[in-house]
Design a binder for these strands. Structure first.
Lengths: 194, 194
DNA sequence: CACTGCTGGTAGACACCGTCTACGAACTCT
DNA sequence: AGAGTTCGTAGACGGTGTCTACCAGCAGTG
């Protein structure tokens, strides 16, 4: 009846993605996903042996989405590496703010065990994009490229996290994260005017 | 009979702290805490109307512990503000690494609702210590003091988070977080030799 | 066609969870 | 002694994730 007949496995993941985006982490219970997919609560087990396996598949979709957005940003941004870095950072922070539930799910540490969410397939591609750009703007006195990129990534991630948590708005008195983003980039890459 | 007769409320929190430190977030269920405290599962309700209220009290204890460690560090560190900042940062990262479950619990965003965990009582005192030190080493061309301090804090927090998550060890190839910490401090506060 | 075997989903049980409510023991105060 | 309050018990309810037994429908073979 419905146009697409994509198979239950994909449907479960799609429902889960939709659910975590719309209602947050606490809504993605196994039974609720099954319910909304129109199957019994035991059905998912055929494709995902355990709940966290399903959650991992959902989180993987989140990483794919973020990666796609970053790639689109990279297409649209100009050639200047510093400008590209700014755009990349903005995309990261916007994603975290717009898709809070998904962002939290993606970085849940209990989804890492026993190879469900392999870092090489998820965060590493993103880091590679960042690291390449960082290498282009790195100054001789800076830390080695991987360390510099790692520190910058951590800074972005921390801003996203603490901003959503509410600490940074309170502590800095700011109403948006732009000043923080600018400060972080200037700190790690040097001021823009130089 | 036992020496201390501290009242159930405090005992529940103590058991919860012990439990989250030893076995992580998933172990701090209401019923398990009650069990280990030797009371029925309904007893905690007399002091904590809901489970997250109890969790918030446990997290608050975590912030108190971290704050105490920071203050001790500040006592032992010398007068040089930069040195004090390094020590502060080290304490923060060490705490996150040593007490993973507690650190996660402390920054669970769902413990913030309806004034259970008020930021002013928890993270703000810590931020104030950091901000004061940052203000002392801030250079004229740097971002305003609160922004600079906020960005640095976010960097620390991000390193703690992503390091525990395993991304940073993989991405940078490092075996400890010292290089990242140094890079972050140098970036935000300027290199040490200057 | 009849029979077999498999794929993919159903349905019920189990233990555990957080919450709610009724109850009762022990204590204080007059 | 009697009344009221404090504080914990015990059971029920609906929800969860996991496990197991079952079975409808289909494919392939005789």
């Amino acid at each position: 009846m419905s146009a697409e007949e994509t198979g239950l496995r994909a449907r479960l993941v799609a429902v889960g993605v939709d659910l975590v985006l719309r209602e947050g982490q606490s809504a993605v219970s196994l039974r609720e996903i099954a319910r909304r997919a129109g199957v019994s609560h035991g059905a998912p087990r055929r494709y995902f042996p355990t709940h966290v396996d399903l959650l991992s598949a959902i989180a993987r979709e989140g990483f794919a989405d973020l990666t796609a957005r970053v790639e689109e940003t990279m297409r649209d941004a100009g050639p200047d590496p510093r400008t590209r870095l700014v755009a990349l950072a903005r995309t990261y922070l916007d994603f975290a703010a717009a898709h809070r539930g998904m962002f939290e799910l993606m970085f849940r540490h209990d989804l890492l065990g026993s190879g469900r969410l392999r870092l090489r397939e998820t965060s590493l591609p993103l880091f590679t994009v960042l690291a390449d750009l960082v290498a282009q703007v790195r100054r001789p006195t800076d830390a080695p490229a991987p360390v510099l990129a790692g520190a910058l990534w951590a800074n972005l991630h921390g801003i996203a996290q603490l901003w959503a948590w509410g600490s940074l708005p309170l502590a800095t008195g700011a109403t948006d994260d732009d000043a923080l983003l600018r400060a972080a980039l200037d700190a790690h890459l040097g001021p823009t005017l130089a």
